[in-house]
Design a protein around this nucleic acid. Sequence first.
DNA 1: CGAAGTGTTGAAGGGTTTCAAGCATAGTGG
DNA 2: CCACTATGCTTGAAACCCTTCAACACTTCG
Lengths: 265, 265
Amino acid sequence: MNWSQRPMAAPFFSRLRRSSQIAAADVAALSALPAEIRVFEAHATIVPEGRRNDHVHVMLDGWASRTKILENGSRQMPALFVAGDVCDLDGLLFVRSDCTTMALTRCTVALLPRDILLTLLDRHRGLRHALGSMLATELSTSTQWTVCLGRRSARERLGHLLCELSVRLHSVGLGNGLGVCTLPLTQEEIADVLGLTAVHVNRTLQGLRSDGLIQLREQRLLINDWAALRRECGFDAAYLHVDGVAAGPPDGRGMSADAHVSLNS
Amino acid sequence: MNWSQRPMAAPFFSRLRRSSQIAAADVAALSALPAEIRVFEAHATIVPEGRRNDHVHVMLDGWASRTKILENGSRQMPALFVAGDVCDLDGLLFVRSDCTTMALTRCTVALLPRDILLTLLDRHRGLRHALGSMLATELSTSTQWTVCLGRRSARERLGHLLCELSVRLHSVGLGNGLGVCTLPLTQEEIADVLGLTAVHVNRTLQGLRSDGLIQLREQRLLINDWAALRRECGFDAAYLHVDGVAAGPPDGRGMSADAHVSLNS
DNA sequence: CGAAGTGTTGAAGGGTTTCAAGCATAGTGG
DNA sequence: CCACTATGCTTGAAACCCTTCAACACTTCG
């Protein structure tokens, strides 16, 4: 069976179609690639630092993160990947990866042969634009995280992250409406994303809960008051570049203008 | 006169040639672009947030930064640009920029028409790889900054930044040897890069100075003990992707293998 | 000469960390 | 079925890094 026909591949192709310049032939060519499907258990390494990039890894299911361990043993996760994300886009340009990507939950990943994909990119302008936009979005997201870590309080960082994840999952068709989604990360993992300690994440989470802004238990996140949370942490979804995305009801229409406005109001 | 023949354009073309796949024809095509040269005074806005991207901005001289101002008035600079950098690479992929880029010093910038450059990219595989690598390097740099802001002390962050800037300037032929370069940023601007206050940057700088690690006065930086500073802040230049770059003496040879080793020892 | 920008220093306060302990849940093997 | 262990969540108290506020020195410039 063609890998693109698995239901799990829907988020990735939904992201591809976000590009204004993608054509049916582009999608078809990518679908025809000989992909290997692999499952990584939680805590397994998907792409080790320094490995030669022979494949590009497309997340089909589960959560993963870029992970750096410092000399003193502390850990930071400068990027999170969910279904639909490519977790080593830089591998298309560089021979070796300079950051480890590890599975946070059990992950299903499609491995696309790098050299074949590169020749495909030479022929397909639309694919270049789509994957380039994904890389640029990753940069703008990383930029936003830098701003959050540099100038926002623990409460703002946490709220901002929850808003972002909610939008990202919603935009690829995961989660039930905006503000309702799974969040299978432990508080320690959240801390390693936000540059905090697990203890402080715990207390901050309680603050958001007791103020009625969110609910979070058993790996289910519910944002009770989207507008209030958004306002308090200064979240603006523009940097995620999801506008016009087909993330609405599965009737084929894209997200309406109103739906987009609702992200930011 | 062709814009590429200005001496100021050397750092940018030096960066282009870092790509293993760039060809003479690629460089020639880019050189032939009708570029407008503009000078921005310090504190001027080079690319305002939300503006339609009609041009791509190549830094020829001076320092610039991405700048975000938060609701509470605090400022964060999630990226720094020096000669040779393209300060709105994402503008090639997105219609509008989602971050302001401002001049920190007087800047000379080459404006390349976006649509012409895009058609050029369609024809020149080498240019695609070169600019793509620059974008990927910007991502890996942003990733590294996120790690620093999340898990490193003020002293480590500051030392790490000084190491990075020293290597970046050295790699495009600016500065006199590794660890000697200009640093025209105010302590407040450094603070806005590192997510600290100017007061604390001041005190931290004094710590590095009194420990004999660096000298910094009148906008000249000198790293006295590269190995010690590098060790103390956990700096590893790999993420800058400067290996094999033509950054040595102006005799045309690339940086030798030994020179590269010296970056990390 | 006054004003503005930058660097410097001191003292007090606060957000976050660190350390430590306790609790709940799930899985495991006897 | 029940210790036993491992993992994750929760809570308290003390310590610390960095911020905040305030003041002053120095330089540049109109």
